[in-house]
Design a protein around this nucleic acid. Sequence first.
DNA 1: GACTCCCCTGACAAGGTTGTCAGACGCCAC
DNA 2: GTGGCGTCTGACAACCTTGTCAGGGGAGTC
Lengths: 350, 350
Amino acid sequence: MTEHADPVTTPYRPRATLRDVAAMAGVSMKTVSRVVNGEAGVTPQKVDAVRLAVSRLDYRPNVSASALRRSSRRTAAIGTVLEDLANPFSSALLRAVEDVANEKRVLILAGSVDEDQQRERALVRAFTERRVDGLIIAPVGEDQGYLRTEMEAGTPLVFVDRQPQGLLADCVLSDNEAGARNAVHQLAEVGHRRIAYLGDLAIIPTAQQRFAGYQRGLLECGLPLDPAHVVHDLHTIDDAARATTALLRSEGAPTALFASQNLVTIGAITALQELGLEQGVALFGFDDFPLADLLKPRVSVVAQDPAAMGRAAAELLFERLDGERDRPRRILLPTTTVLRGSGEIPPGRP
Amino acid sequence: MTEHADPVTTPYRPRATLRDVAAMAGVSMKTVSRVVNGEAGVTPQKVDAVRLAVSRLDYRPNVSASALRRSSRRTAAIGTVLEDLANPFSSALLRAVEDVANEKRVLILAGSVDEDQQRERALVRAFTERRVDGLIIAPVGEDQGYLRTEMEAGTPLVFVDRQPQGLLADCVLSDNEAGARNAVHQLAEVGHRRIAYLGDLAIIPTAQQRFAGYQRGLLECGLPLDPAHVVHDLHTIDDAARATTALLRSEGAPTALFASQNLVTIGAITALQELGLEQGVALFGFDDFPLADLLKPRVSVVAQDPAAMGRAAAELLFERLDGERDRPRRILLPTTTVLRGSGEIPPGRP
DNA sequence: GACTCCCCTGACAAGGTTGTCAGACGCCAC
DNA sequence: GTGGCGTCTGACAACCTTGTCAGGGGAGTC
């Protein structure tokens, strides 16, 4: 093993500035600025000289300094505050935002809040300290009033997934209530009369809406609401699996399950498989998930479209940035009921 | 429906600056700066006066201006260039990076490249124009030499998932070759002699390594490499499903499949289910995926750990930022062979 | 040939902040 | 009362840009 003669001696060449380019090209800094920004009023010779210096020095304009000075004071970056960048819902949404932003040559700062109000505030603060041009937020807390200052300072805000509290602002939501209601109708139509509700943390607004839809669905179908068939506050796959097992082993067990969220659905499936009941108990999930149609039975769901939400939110935001001054808008995206099999299992099967 | 009297008249109050705070508190700007930054040498009375003004005006320091002036010139933001923020691999990795960065109070700029070299360069350029403190990159192109300038300017670079070309820099990789090799060994041990390779785009370095591992595995097990059982360039679920169907319908069809990537595995499963062969043909996938253990049969995989990759990459990056000057380091993360069932199906079942 | 007019160009200031430094002030000792 | 020291404070410059504006020069007009 011969030793390398040259262990990565990075020569360290500090970044060139406008001043350096100007010096090399023999023009004033302002002229370089003009060339770099494509402003008119520079003779072709000088343009060439500047271009040459730029490429020789590998000059990169400092966007922060530029934004500081520019009258628009735009940084061409937006902040995105989501639940958890690693979950499929958040990441699909983020990706859609990115695609819209990318067309406008705007960058994305992103962060996860993990259902933590403090973290939401900290992220928003960090983003506004960088003077992002706008914010897309999936709000957590009970109160977004603290964001009023940002709106007054001219930073447009768009909320996704959940409505802001204590603040009027654009938002993009799924029709959670209608979606849950539809699922219940579907299960009732097949003949179920004992439909259990497996819900996420009850403090989460979307969970509340889905529960409301569940209740309304029961009411409309003339079914009683059995408190023994309602479980809230399931936030992990394991929680959900345990709760499902308990439910199905109980006296007067439900013949159908409505799972109000992704992970809850998966937990329910796990439990059903363990009990060997996956073909005997109907299951409807809220939120689609990859592979739902490769499982046996294939899983029926009420699907949201996170990418559409992200796209809509980003579009609202950019309209605001383009000067739209209307009152806050509220976009309610419909859900899609996807019948794949598990939701159509009739009651009374082994 | 009564109309709102007040249609969102946002009063527009521009953001307060250091100057405004100083004026209100009756001190110099420098003193405000001292208080805000927790520097010593300010009398308690003045501190209070400043604090009061800060909260009255809801002052937010302008981090960009601050970074511009500070000698360290740190922006407390890093850029992350990944394949596709919406795919589980990238998003798990990103999330891990975020968690490490968050501890250091550093923000994340993120973008997707979608296997597009141009896009990689554009993102890197956009990030460096914002003077991010460092970059984490899953490189696409054949040549990352263009990044030498960034390194020389003192911006640390860490590559993930794939090795950079034409540049010496820190990187974090999965041991793709060993992982693929192990899968082949496993399949051979159960008795398979006709193991097909279903591969992603052949230009992707990780795909090449996995193919190399597959070849090596065959060699070590004394099995012939049958060109008819090798398919490259499958990049979508549909591609993979079609290729799988074709393979299994062919003369001398393989008795086991090695799928070199997530989507390819899923495509293969789809095809197997359609042909009713999921219990008759062994399947090993590279990359774990959610629900792999809820399918029937449960899917055996060679699992990477994207979160560990992200964490390792972020830690390397922050070490560099803390002044580490060693030669570039290369971290090779082992893969885990997860036997769940599909990989243990013996040959010769219906 | 004198005078506009217009096009280029650079000097200068400003954007929000921090680093430097010298001065003001209070206090003590001689 | 003066000198000296240490603490607190603000004036000023600087970071890297861009906006403003006035001056220089060439072309065109009478």
